[in-house]
Each structure stands twice: as C-alpha cells, then as structure tokens.
Amino acid sequence: MGKIFESITTHQRDFILKQKMFFVATAAGEGRVNLSPKGLDAFRLINEHQVAWLNLTGSGNETSMHVQQNPRMTMMFCAFEGSPLILRLYGKAKVLHQADENFDTYSKLFPTFTGTRQIFVLDIDKTQSSCGMGVPLYDFVEQRQQLVQSHDKQGKNGVEAYWKKANQLSFDGDETRVLELSGIQDESE
C-alpha cells in the first residue's frame, strides 16, 4: 500500500540523492502522455517542496510544450539496488528557457552542458512511496556520455540549429516555441 506525504521526507531525500536516474511524466490537455527517463548530473533537490532538473537537447521537446499548456508533472524514482522502493513526486512545474529571468539562478546549480535546453522547476504538493518489489535489481555501470559528446561536437550553434530542425513541434503537432522562449532569432523568417 502506497503512503502519501505533503512534502519530501528526510528518508525520501536520502533515497533520491542516491539514484542514478529518474523518470518524468507530463501531458497536455489533449494528445499523448510523455514519459522520459533522465540521467547524468541533471537533478537538484532545492528543498522539501521543490526540485529542479536540467533538460538537455533531445529528439523531441514534449515536456516543455506540455508544461506550457498544463503544468502538471510527475517524477518517479525507483530503487534498482538495495531495498525496494518507488517514489513519485507530484506537483506543478514551470519551464525556464535561457531567456527567462530565473534561468541563470537555477543553471548555476548544474554542470555546464553545451546541449542545455531548459530547466524545469517542480513545486511539489504530494509525494507517494510504494513498495517497488516488482522492480528488478540492476548494477549501475556508468552514465552514458554519447549525448553530451554529440552536443559538444555540434557546438552551441549546431545545437540551436537542431532545435530549429527537430524541436519546433511536439509529437502531437503543437508548437514548442523553443527558439522564441530561448531568445534566439529564427533567421529563416
């Protein structure tokens, strides 16, 4: 039976800080639900009511578009080693693009990555822990570096060109506004 809490407990905080990956789920009012696995050094626990995570450039930009339309977000952590546990964080998210006033404040919390696209800040209103006994045990080897290496090879201009090519529309055809919200002039207009 799952247990519900109003904020991140000390036990949950300790569990979160040991995890090597997490999952993020969002949905707009219509269309598909997006669920993404996240790794690297991209998560920060701000306090018991707020977390932030750094979003690197990827094949889509669903989470940003969803949060612009509907700020609901669920994050999930699960134990792949040690005692079983699944932990979900529920709340309202905001997306910070590079042109946003608070972007620099939060970006200082993370390593510098060429492929940085956005930062998401989740204000937590509930957490839920459940048993996790059905989650398999895995041994962590290392974080993959291919995404970071690809971004470094492309450089900042190449990453922004990729946003223009592949990150302008969501899977459901909604505009993500990634260039506009990042303060980047689209030269083709």
Score class of each variant (00 low, 15 high):
T57G: 02
L169R: 08
T112S: 11
M1E: 08
T74K: 00
N157G: 12
V141A: 15
T10F: 14
C78E: 09
F103C: 05
S36Y: 12
H97Y: 11
R177A: 14
F15G: 06
A25L: 14
N70W: 07
F22T: 01
H49T: 06
N34Q: 11
A27L: 05
Q118W: 07
I16D: 10
V24I: 13
S188V: 07
T9Q: 10
N47F: 06
A93Y: 01
Y162E: 04
L45F: 02
E48S: 13
E62I: 08
H11Y: 07
H66G: 05
T57D: 01
K92T: 04
K3L: 15
A52K: 02
N55Q: 06
V178S: 05
D172I: 11
P37I: 08
T112Y: 08
G39N: 03
G158I: 04
N167C: 14
A99T: 02
G155F: 12
V51W: 07
Q168I: 02
S36V: 15
G134H: 09
L56T: 06
I8L: 06
S170E: 05
Q154S: 14
K108S: 10
M133A: 12
A42V: 12
P71C: 04
E180P: 07
V51P: 03
G60P: 03
A25E: 13
T26N: 05
S64N: 05
S130W: 03
V121F: 01
T10E: 15
L122A: 02
E101M: 06
V135W: 02
Q19G: 00
P71Q: 07
L181S: 03
S188F: 02
V159R: 00
S36I: 14
D125W: 10
V148K: 09
K156W: 04
S64T: 04
F77I: 08
E175G: 04
R117C: 02
G132P: 03
E101K: 08
N61I: 02
G31E: 04
K3N: 15
E189A: 12
M76S: 01
K153S: 15
S7M: 09
T127C: 13
T9V: 09
D41S: 12
Q149C: 05
V141C: 13
H66W: 06
T74Y: 03
Q69H: 10
A166E: 07
D14M: 13
S64M: 04
F103N: 02
P136C: 04
E48Y: 06
A93E: 00
F43I: 10
I8A: 07
S150W: 15
K164F: 14
D123P: 01
G82R: 05
V148L: 03
Q154K: 15
C78R: 05
S36R: 13
I184H: 03
F103Q: 03
D100A: 10
Q128F: 11
C78F: 12
F103G: 06
D186W: 10
I16V: 13
Q118Y: 08
E189I: 15
I16N: 12
L40K: 11
A52N: 01
G173I: 14
T57H: 01
P37D: 08
G82Y: 01
N70C: 12
S64W: 01
Y162L: 11
G132C: 07
Q168V: 05
A161S: 14
S188H: 04
S59N: 10
F15A: 09
N102G: 03
D152G: 10
S188I: 04
H11K: 15
Q146C: 12
E142M: 12
P136A: 04
N167L: 15
F103W: 06
Q50M: 13
H11I: 03
H49N: 12
E30W: 11
